[in-house]
Simulated assay, not measured.
Amino acid sequence: MGVSMADKWWYNSRTGEVELGPQSNSIDRVGPFDTREEAAHAPEKLRQNAEKWAADDAAENR
């Protein structure tokens, strides 16, 4: 039996809080993550992804 979304961790980008289960509005929520620690590092992961995608786009347009 799979894990439900209520058992996953989320990062609230509006408040900066980590939440167990989808508590806040979806527009403010990043996730799901398997652990609280992963959710707490969501802003860093999002920044890394954005930098990688920008570099990939720049390389494609050369």
Rank of each mutant, 00 (worst) to 15 (best):
M1I: 09
G2R: 15
G2H: 14
V3D: 11
V3T: 15
V3Y: 11
S4N: 12
S4R: 12
M5G: 12
A6F: 07
A6H: 06
A6N: 10
A6V: 12
A6S: 10
D7K: 09
K8V: 13
W9I: 15
W9D: 07
W9V: 14
W9F: 15
W10H: 15
Y11H: 14
Y11N: 03
Y11T: 10
Y11K: 06
N12P: 01
N12Q: 04
R14H: 02
R14N: 05
T15N: 13
G16Y: 06
G16S: 13
G16C: 07
E17I: 02
E17C: 02
E17V: 07
V18Q: 04
V18L: 05
V18E: 06
E19Q: 15
E19D: 14
E19C: 14
L20K: 14
G21I: 02
P22H: 14
P22E: 14
Q23I: 09
S24L: 06
N25D: 12
N25C: 03
S26N: 02
S26I: 12
S26W: 01
S26E: 04
I27T: 02
R29N: 10
V30H: 07
V30A: 12
V30I: 13
V30C: 09
V30P: 00
G31Q: 07
G31E: 04
G31D: 04
F33W: 15
F33L: 11
F33N: 09
D34W: 11
D34S: 12
T35C: 09
T35F: 05
R36P: 00
E37C: 06
E37Q: 10
E37Y: 08
E38F: 05
E38P: 03
E38L: 12
E38A: 13
A40N: 06
H41E: 13
H41R: 10
H41T: 04
A42Y: 00
A42M: 03
A42S: 10
P43D: 03
P43F: 01
E44M: 09
E44C: 05
K45Y: 09
K45Q: 14
R47Q: 11
R47Y: 08
R47K: 12
Q48P: 03
Q48L: 10
Q48G: 05
N49C: 07
N49G: 09
A50D: 08
A50N: 08
E51A: 04
K52R: 09
K52F: 06
A54M: 02
A55T: 03
A55S: 07
A55D: 04
D57H: 04
A58P: 01
A58H: 06
A58M: 07
A59S: 03
A59R: 07
A59I: 02
A59G: 02
E60R: 09
E60G: 02
N61S: 08
R62T: 08
R62E: 14
R62L: 07
